[in-house]
Simulated assay, not measured.
Amino acid sequence: MIWLTALTVAGLAALGLWMLLDRNLKRVVLGIAVLGNAINLAVFAAGRLGAEQAAFTPAGQVPLAAANPLPQALVLTAIVIGFALFAFALALLKRSRDLHGDRETDHVSAVTEEPAPDLRQGPDREGQA
């Protein structure tokens, strides 16, 4: 079972990195979500999938079918943070699409490196004494 989990984590991580390296902004945002899920699954699997040993009990007093609550709590927190990051990335994607259209990352990078609109007019612009 742990081998299947490890292969799933590796596959999700590879897919997430591949999507992050794409030039399409939609795939970059989806790559963030997929990579986050791969990391969550890796943390969850690191806490042992079986119930051989509980987190905070002495070695001889392991309750039957006890699960390790620490990785579960960490993953639950990471899911909430990952969802907030995904929602923020979707908001940025929508704003970028409204301003620049459905573009690639190179175009958006070129636009963000341009000087601000008020700096293009020079020192003798309207409104200054």
Rank of each mutant, 00 (worst) to 15 (best):
A59K: 09
P63W: 13
F88C: 07
D102A: 03
L92D: 07
V80R: 02
A66L: 11
V75W: 00
A91H: 12
L74N: 05
Q72S: 09
L70H: 07
V62W: 12
F88A: 08
A84Y: 04
P63S: 13
A84G: 03
H100W: 05
A54P: 05
T57G: 09
R97T: 06
F83T: 11
Q53P: 05
L90A: 05
A66V: 12
A67Y: 14
A87S: 08
R95A: 09
Q61D: 15
G50C: 12
P69L: 05
A51I: 12
A55T: 07
R103M: 06
G82R: 00
A55I: 04
T77H: 08
G60R: 10
L74C: 07
P63L: 11
G50E: 11
G60P: 07
K94M: 13
E52I: 13
A55Y: 08
L74M: 11
N68V: 05
L76P: 05
A51F: 10
I81H: 04
R95S: 09
F83S: 12
S96K: 02
K94H: 15
A67V: 14
A59V: 12
A65W: 14
A91S: 11
A67M: 13
G60Y: 09
P71S: 03
E52Y: 14
R97C: 02
P71L: 00
Q72D: 08
A66F: 08
L85F: 06
F83I: 09
L76R: 12
